[in-house]
Amino acid sequence: TSQSKEFDPLGPLPPGWEKRTDSNGRVYFVNHNTRITQWEDPRSQGQLNE
Rank of each mutant, 00 (worst) to 15 (best):
T1L: 01
T1N: 08
T1K: 03
T1Q: 00
T1C: 02
T1F: 03
T1I: 15
S2C: 01
S2N: 15
S2E: 05
S2T: 07
S2P: 04
S2Q: 04
Q3W: 02
Q3N: 15
Q3A: 07
S4T: 14
S4P: 05
S4E: 15
S4V: 07
S4Y: 10
S4H: 14
S4I: 03
S4G: 10
K5S: 05
K5Y: 06
K5D: 02
K5T: 02
K5M: 02
E6R: 05
E6G: 07
E6N: 09
E6S: 14
F7N: 09
F7S: 13
F7Y: 10
F7C: 06
D8S: 12
D8P: 11
D8I: 09
D8Q: 11
D8E: 08
D8A: 07
D8K: 14
P9F: 02
P9E: 11
P9Q: 15
P9T: 08
P9Y: 07
P9G: 10
P9K: 02
P9A: 10
P9V: 05
L10N: 15
L10Q: 10
L10H: 15
G11M: 03
G11P: 04
G11V: 08
G11R: 06
G11D: 14
G11L: 07
P12I: 04
P12S: 10
P12C: 08
P12A: 14
P12M: 06
P12Y: 04
P12K: 05
P12E: 13
L13H: 00
L13D: 00
L13E: 03
L13V: 05
L13K: 02
P14Q: 13
P14A: 06
P14L: 01
P14E: 06
P14F: 04
P14M: 05
P14C: 04
P15K: 13
P15G: 13
P15E: 15
P15V: 15
P15M: 11
P15H: 07
P15D: 05
P15L: 13
G16M: 08
G16H: 14
G16N: 14
G16K: 08
W17G: 02
W17V: 08
W17H: 03
W17S: 02
W17D: 01
W17M: 02
E18R: 04
E18L: 10
E18H: 04
E18T: 07
E18W: 04
E18V: 10
K19M: 09
K19R: 13
K19T: 09
K19Y: 03
K19Q: 08
K19G: 04
K19N: 15
R20C: 14
R20A: 10
R20E: 08
R20V: 10
T21Q: 09
T21K: 12
T21Y: 07
T21E: 13
T21R: 13
T21I: 04
T21N: 07
D22R: 05
D22S: 15
D22I: 04
D22M: 07
D22K: 15
D22Q: 07
D22P: 06
S23F: 06
S23M: 06
S23H: 02
S23L: 07
S23E: 10
N24V: 12
N24Q: 12
N24A: 13
N24D: 15
N24S: 14
G25Y: 05
G25K: 12
G25P: 00
G25H: 05
G25T: 07
G25A: 09
G25D: 10
R26S: 14
R26F: 12
R26H: 10
R26M: 12
R26L: 12
V27K: 10
V27I: 11
V27H: 13
V27L: 11
V27F: 15
V27R: 09
V27D: 09
Y28M: 07
Y28K: 05
Y28T: 07
Y28V: 06
Y28N: 03
Y28G: 06
F29C: 01
F29E: 01
F29A: 01
F29Y: 12
F29K: 00
F29N: 01
V30A: 10
V30T: 10
V30H: 07
V30C: 14
V30I: 08
V30L: 06
V30R: 08
V30W: 09
V30F: 11
N31M: 00
N31G: 01
N31T: 00
N31S: 04
N31F: 01
N31P: 01
H32I: 03
H32G: 11
H32Q: 06
H32Y: 09
H32D: 14
H32S: 13
H32A: 12
H32P: 12
N33S: 13
N33L: 00
N33Q: 05
N33K: 06
N33E: 06
N33M: 15
T34Q: 11
T34D: 14
T34M: 15
T34F: 13
T34S: 14
T34V: 08
R35Q: 07
R35M: 08
R35C: 11
R35I: 00
R35P: 03
R35D: 06
R35V: 02
I36H: 07
I36V: 10
I36E: 05
I36K: 10
I36F: 08
I36Q: 07
I36P: 00
T37C: 07
T37V: 04
T37R: 04
T37M: 12
T37G: 03
T37E: 04
T37P: 04
Q38S: 09
Q38A: 04
Q38R: 01
Q38C: 02
Q38L: 03
Q38H: 00
Q38G: 02
Q38N: 04
W39C: 07
W39S: 10
W39N: 02
W39Q: 07
W39E: 13
W39D: 11
E40V: 10
E40K: 13
E40H: 10
E40C: 13
E40S: 14
E40I: 12
D41E: 01
D41L: 02
D41C: 04
D41M: 02
D41G: 01
D41S: 03
D41V: 03
D41R: 07
P42K: 00
P42D: 00
P42N: 00
P42I: 00
P42F: 00
P42L: 00
P42H: 00
R43A: 01
R43P: 03
R43Y: 00
R43D: 01
R43Q: 02
R43M: 01
R43H: 01
R43G: 02
R43I: 01
S44E: 13
S44P: 14
S44K: 15
S44I: 08
S44R: 10
S44A: 13
S44F: 09
Q45R: 14
Q45A: 06
Q45N: 14
Q45H: 06
Q45T: 15
G46E: 14
G46R: 11
G46C: 12
G46I: 15
G46S: 13
G46Q: 06
G46T: 07
Q47S: 03
Q47W: 14
Q47H: 12
Q47M: 09
Q47P: 11
Q47E: 12
L48S: 12
L48F: 12
L48P: 12
L48H: 04
L48W: 10
L48R: 08
L48K: 15
N49R: 09
N49L: 11
N49S: 12
N49Y: 10
N49P: 03
E50M: 05
E50A: 14
E50Y: 01
E50L: 15
